[in-house]
Each structure stands twice: as C-alpha cells, then as structure tokens.
Amino acid sequence: MGFRPDDGSAVAGGMTVGTAASLVGVTVRTLHHWDAIGLVRPSGRTAAGYRLYTAADIARVHRVLVYRELDVPLDHIAGLLDGSADEVAESLSRQRDRLHERILRLRGMAEALDRVVEARDRGTLLSAEEQVAIFGEHWRPTWYAEARDRWGDTGQWAQYAERAAGRSAEDWRRIADDVRALDGDLAAALRDGVRPGDDEANALAERHRASIGAYFDCTHSMHVCLGRRYTTEPGFTAHYDGVEPGLAEWLSRIIDANARARGVDPETATWG
C-alpha cells in the first residue's frame, strides 16, 4: 500500500491535513472546506501536492474556532481575521449585539417553558388567594390538582397548560367575568322558556362552547360529551343548578340540539 502524507502524517515543512485536524479537533473535511473558501489555506504543499499546515496556519485555525464558538458565520470570519482594527471592532460590536439579542430571546423562551411546565403541574400560575378572588368564594383551589390527576395525560390538558402559561391574573378575570355573564344569560333564557333548538338556544350553546375554547379546542362532539357530565357528575350539576334550578339538564339539552343542527348526532358523539 502506498504512503499518503495527506492521510495524517507530519513531514518536513509542516503537518499534513490529518495531523492538523486531529490537533485542533476538527474534521479533515472541515479543513478542506475552509481551504476551498479561502478561510484557512495551508502555507505549503508536498511534492505530491498534499496540504501542509505551518504553526501560523494552525494559529489561524484556532482563531476561526474562537469565532465559530461565538456563532459568527463563516463568511464573516475572514473579515475579522484580515480586516483593519476599526473594521474588526465594528464587526465584533455588531456580533455582540446580535448575541445579546439572542440571549434575551433564549431567556424568554426558557421562562415561557418554565411557565408551561409549572402550569402542567399545578393547573394554573395563580396563587390560591388569587383563584378565590377571581373565581369566587365557592372556588376550591384543589380543583386544579383534581383535574390534573384526572386529565393530566390528555392532549386537552396539555393545550390548557400552554394557554394558561401565558395568562395574567387580569386575563383570568376577564374569562371568569365572561363565564358569569354567560351563566346569567343561560339562566334568563331558561326562565323565559327558550326551548332547545331555538335560534337563541343555539346561540347560547355556541357561546358556551366558545367559553370552553378558552381552555382547549372543543368540537361539537366533545361539547355533547361535556353536556352529559353536567347531568351525571354532582359537581357540575351543583354549579349549574346553583345558578338556576334545572339549568344543568336544560344546558345539556340545548348543547345536544345545537350539535344536531350542525350535523353531529348526540347519540353517537364521542370525545375527540
């Protein structure tokens, strides 16, 4: 087998590309590329034409690596290595500013992720006192933990947490006010004898579905499934019947009628 200096041997007049690559911790392909674009060109060649890197060449490679570590694009590095002092200073200042902007962006992303993780675990970023102040004296802060234990592995809980992570106390206050207003309008419609399937009842059912959408995307089929719980789960029934006697059953019926008007058969509705 013939001897190929370019495979990594040191020879008189410099070191071959393989040796240079091993010394500085990059690949041979990288040095070939830097040579091709004129960023680091070896100062010598063997009689057979193989690259030879001098100590000065290796020093230039190390300078390139410093700037690459700072995420400076390759096409900017040559100017930093070969430009005037003023040009280099200006370029470094621009790169520093971009780096600071990136740091701020990454910090913001990290903080947002922290909020999502916390919201997925706690159900809300509100304190217990804030929850009661916003949702009312009958609100129990433990409900979030109960909901997490029940639905924490669902896509809806993940979607809820992503939305909750970006909400302030004022955002939650607006949502709570909208729910209270909706409850009042539902109770008034029941007292006024509005029947399931009427235009007014369908509009109220759509408002109710939209209120669920503040937490997660709710299809008409999913809405029907929720409506069933209003008449079968004591906590839901107590809430709505506490607003107006019989409201839980009536709400379930207008949800069914609205879904039917939109092509969903309540008898076969499923979650999803």
Score class of each variant (00 low, 15 high):
1 M>C: 04
2 G>F: 07
4 R>Y: 14
4 R>Q: 13
5 P>H: 03
7 D>E: 14
8 G>H: 04
10 A>N: 01
10 A>V: 13
13 G>Q: 02
13 G>D: 04
14 G>D: 05
15 M>Q: 13
28 V>C: 03
29 R>M: 05
30 T>L: 13
31 L>T: 09
35 D>F: 03
36 A>S: 14
38 G>E: 07
40 V>K: 06
40 V>E: 06
40 V>W: 08
45 R>D: 02
45 R>S: 08
46 T>C: 00
47 A>H: 10
48 A>G: 15
57 D>Y: 08
58 I>Q: 09
59 A>E: 15
61 V>P: 02
64 V>M: 10
67 Y>N: 03
72 V>A: 07
75 D>Q: 12
75 D>L: 04
76 H>T: 05
78 A>P: 00
78 A>N: 10
80 L>Y: 08
80 L>W: 09
81 L>G: 10
81 L>M: 09
82 D>R: 11
85 A>S: 12
90 E>Y: 02
90 E>G: 09
91 S>H: 13
94 R>P: 00
95 Q>H: 15
95 Q>E: 14
99 L>V: 02
100 H>Q: 11
102 R>D: 10
103 I>G: 06
106 L>P: 00
106 L>C: 02
106 L>W: 02
107 R>T: 11
107 R>E: 14
110 A>C: 01
111 E>K: 02
117 V>L: 10
124 T>S: 15
125 L>T: 02
125 L>P: 03
126 L>G: 11
128 A>M: 01
130 E>H: 04
132 V>L: 01
132 V>Y: 02
133 A>G: 06
134 I>S: 05
136 G>Q: 01
137 E>M: 03
138 H>T: 13
138 H>I: 02
143 W>Y: 10
143 W>I: 05
143 W>E: 10
144 Y>P: 00
146 E>I: 10
146 E>F: 10
148 R>S: 03
149 D>E: 15
153 D>V: 12
153 D>N: 13
156 Q>G: 01
156 Q>S: 10
160 Y>I: 00
161 A>L: 01
162 E>M: 12
162 E>A: 15
162 E>S: 12
164 A>H: 05
166 G>F: 07
167 R>E: 08
168 S>F: 08
171 D>L: 03
173 R>K: 13
174 R>Y: 07
174 R>F: 07
178 D>Q: 13
179 V>H: 12
180 R>G: 11
185 D>I: 00
193 G>R: 08
194 V>K: 08
194 V>D: 11
196 P>K: 04
197 G>D: 12
197 G>F: 12
199 D>W: 01
200 E>K: 14
202 N>T: 13
204 L>N: 11
209 R>V: 07
210 A>I: 08
211 S>E: 13
214 A>T: 13
216 F>H: 14
218 C>R: 05
219 T>P: 06
220 H>T: 03
220 H>W: 15
222 M>V: 06
222 M>D: 15
225 C>K: 09
226 L>I: 14
226 L>R: 04
227 G>R: 08
227 G>P: 09
229 R>I: 09
230 Y>A: 04
232 T>D: 12
232 T>E: 15
234 P>G: 01
235 G>N: 03
236 F>W: 13
236 F>Q: 04
236 F>C: 02
243 V>S: 04
248 A>E: 02
250 W>L: 05
256 D>V: 00
256 D>F: 00
257 A>W: 03
258 N>D: 14
263 G>R: 06
264 V>H: 06
267 E>I: 00
270 T>W: 09
